[in-house]
Design a protein around this nucleic acid. Structure first.
Lengths: 196, 196
DNA sequence: CCTGGATCCTAGCACCGCTAGACAACCGAG
DNA sequence: CTCGGTTGTCTAGCGGTGCTAGGATCCAGG
């Protein structure tokens, strides 16, 4: 069975290559440039190979989104933990969390798009929501629950806070908001939403 | 010269028809279904006619977006004015404003997408930003300036508030947030952001 | 060594946004 | 009223898209 195992391993390896290449291409030239032909050429296989791994382009986007969600969750936890050891209290943790979120969106615009703007065929807020997405929300909640305020459901508060961050991220990146003042907006948002 | 005037009038009429039809089609079946072929068929002209009015599909989306921006601004002003005459004060006006914004996004998803999600080739936060877009922002600012709080620039506060609304609108509609609790989220957002 | 099944590629489908060039319809001048 | 030229519209087609059917190739297992 060693032969089959090797083949399976190679297949998994190629699948990772596809996702990584799609992500690269998207970050380099935008998702519009990620066509099945270009993607196939970059991985040095023909188009139909893509369809032996994914149902279609949507699923490839979805795979990139899942990868991104895991990274985002990790970075959010790291930021919150990093701020915890510094002098500040809950407020500092929340600020660090918000900054980390917006940083991620700014540094990985294509991945962020895959997660929230494009249709990756992923279910949200439902039973079959992938673990990585639930975990991203959980990472937010862990820090935000402490500043939700009395009588406010932490889940509800997290939803609102997340939506605000998402709005800032998308509008800023789309040029809808002046880019220079991002930091001031974060400060204002945190100071108002978070109850210390 | 009356003949030319008539022709110009008919041309303008047809342009309105194109925009209205694009909007209809988008609301009915989503923007993906708005292809130049389908659009041309619905207005009972051939495709090249579209290109005698607009540079391309982007500009058609942009025209729908502008139309939507004007409507949104009007509805925001109406909501704020309507709440002003009722018992409540600034807080009531802000709540009405937020509800009106989210209502618009929910009732005109395709138009909202044209304005903020798709590329309609419109400039934002720049000198050549179309008047309708500036006016939409102005409509928000008129009501929000009263609850920005001391020492906070009304413009900055409006940006943050708008971003939060935008985040709620997009995440809710994309199924990223449970739809049922929209009203509670609005209440929480307003109660925290607005300084009465 | 042979064979059967897994694996991959070539070729093609229907559709997309967009445009060149042929054709018809109409207006103004004589 | 007729004719020439402009203006307007359509047919046909280009290169691209996502996706798939069917044949060629390769290689493990007998």
């Amino acid at each position: 069975m060693s032969v089959q195992e090797r083949k399976q391993r190679e297949r998994a390896e190629r699948e990772r290559l596809i996702v990584a290449t799609a992500r690269e291409l998207a970050e380099e030239q935008g998702w519009d440039a990620v066509t099945t032909r270009r993607l196939a050429e970059r991985i040095e296989y023909s188009q139909p190979v893509l369809y032996s791994h994914f149902r279609g382009k949507r699923e490839i986007i979805g795979a990139v989104a899942l990868e991104g969600a895991a990274e985002l969750a990790a970075q959010l936890r790291a930021a919150s933990a990093g701020a915890a050891v510094s002098t500040e209290g809950a407020r500092g943790r929340v600020t660090a969390l918000a900054r980390a979120y917006l940083d991620f969106a700014e540094r990985n615009p294509a991945v962020y798009d895959a997660m929230f703007q494009l249709d990756g065929g992923l279910a949200f807020a439902a039973e079959d929501t992938p673990q990585a997405l639930k975990d991203g929300f959980a990472a937010l909640l862990e820090t935000l629950r402490d500043v939700a305020g009395e009588g406010v459901e932490p889940g509800l508060f997290t939803e609102v806070f997340w939506a605000s961050l998402h709005g800032l991220a998308t509008l800023t990146r789309a040029g809808r908001l002046p880019a220079g003042e991002a930091e001031r907006r974060v400060g204002l948002l945190v100071s108002r939403l978070a109850v210390v």
